[in-house]
Simulated assay, not measured.
Amino acid sequence: MKVFKKKILPILLTLFTVSFLTILSLLYARGYRISLDNPKDGNSIEPKIVVKKTGILAVRSIPNSAKIYIDGKLVDITDATLSSLAPGKYQIRIQKEGFEVWEREVEVYEDLVTDITALLVLKGGGLNPLTNNGVTDFELSKNGELLAYLSKGEEKPGLWAIQLSNSPINIFQTNKKALALDSPGFTYSSAASIQWSPDDQEILVKMNDAAYLLVDLSKPPTQVPQSFSNPTQIFEKWATLQYKNKKAIVDAIEIPETLKVLAMSDKSMWSPDGKKFWFFDDNTSTDYTYIQVYNFKEPLPVGEKVINETLKYRKDVVLPNIYWYSDSEHLILADTSSIKIINIDGFNMFELFSGNVIDSKAYPAPAGDRIIISSKFKSDAPQNLYTISIR
């Protein structure tokens, strides 16, 4: 009997140990962690061993290799996945030399992965010329691929465009083309403004004498454009086309019926990825105008909200022009003296440029590394296009 006990006890002990370790491994794999829970009520002296569920924080930055701080403590470098975090709120700071500090409170949930992507912005981003021959007006196409502008100083004056891509752009670029050249009857380069059609097939040129010229981009630069004194019919046609474009987006994703009116409104602007729109809400009983972003990503990432109150302004304040940034996660704010960028959740607003911003226009390059503006630095100098470096 004693011999039997001596043989069986080690086996049982081994089985118990293996089973215990297996259970611990399974609990660990499912996000549970063992910790000491120190009593706070004063009724118990000994700390208790407790098993708690944890969450995961996946942290990414653009550019990467930035330091990650949680509640003031350096924990890793982006891009990183931080596991074994107790559910709760944490103060996250992401820092990289030469860039603005990204910081906000983030909540971690048990059994879930919370994703963070921090857009890091250069401190004092450089300003580089994109044109040097003078520009009178410019506008980005709806698909973000062509930047049209009016110029008297190009090799042939007229309406020109720069083809944008994910490649760097600079003053020595060769990817520009003439859309409509000046002729004795049509001096585009002296026009007041330009406007793209919703389908990017036409550009309406407003002349200084209140006449309008409609440029058909399927025709050569030497074309004879349609001329109008009253563009009402064109704007009505474009409004119908714009409505169809928005309806196609709305029909392609799940949107509550109560929000479809806002989504189709003239006061809404859809993001490049077709998953969000910002809405200009001034029909409130308060003294404020609200800029709200509605997020319809499916599935909605952990921690993100459908309705985001991104900005609010007093109604007696002149609002900036608002543009989508190329990642569909940020808005660009442009007024006559500055360019700013802000996350759609209302956090991490950074000033990209302070100076003369003509017509309060600012368009992102497709790669997201630059913002394009028009400016001039002397009163007697012509205005030109410039790029603001973000990273």
Rank of each mutant, 00 (worst) to 15 (best):
S328N: 05
S183P: 00
K219R: 07
R391H: 04
P87A: 06
D71I: 04
L24Q: 06
K177N: 08
S141C: 10
N384F: 00
F280D: 14
K246G: 05
V113K: 15
Y363R: 00
F228S: 02
P272T: 09
D369T: 11
G42M: 09
N208R: 14
K53I: 01
T17L: 15
P382S: 13
I339Y: 06
S379Q: 08
T286Y: 11
S360D: 00
I307R: 13
G126W: 05
L352E: 01
I344L: 15
L241D: 06
Y212H: 05
I45T: 09
S374K: 14
A210V: 03
I94N: 14
N170M: 02
P366L: 09
A248D: 13
R104Y: 10
I291F: 13
K5L: 12
E298I: 06
Y288G: 03
A180L: 04
A148Y: 00
T258A: 15
Q233S: 12
Q91N: 15
I234Q: 11
G125W: 03
T114P: 05
L333H: 08
E139W: 00
S375W: 00
R93E: 12
K275H: 11
L147N: 07
A210K: 12
V121M: 15
Y32G: 04
T22S: 15
V250Y: 12
A210T: 04
S197I: 01
T387F: 12
I255E: 11
K123I: 08
V250D: 13
T81H: 07
P256T: 02
V250I: 15
L122G: 10
N143Y: 03
N143A: 11
K361C: 03
G153D: 08
G144T: 02
F172K: 15
L127D: 07
Y313L: 06
D216E: 06
P47M: 08
N343W: 03
D266S: 12
L27K: 12
D251A: 14
E145I: 09
F377I: 01
L120F: 12
S354H: 09
K142W: 03
I171D: 02
G346P: 00
L213H: 10
Q91M: 07
M1W: 06
F99A: 10
S229D: 10
K89Y: 04
D251T: 02
A148E: 04
V101K: 14
K206T: 02
P220T: 03
A210L: 07
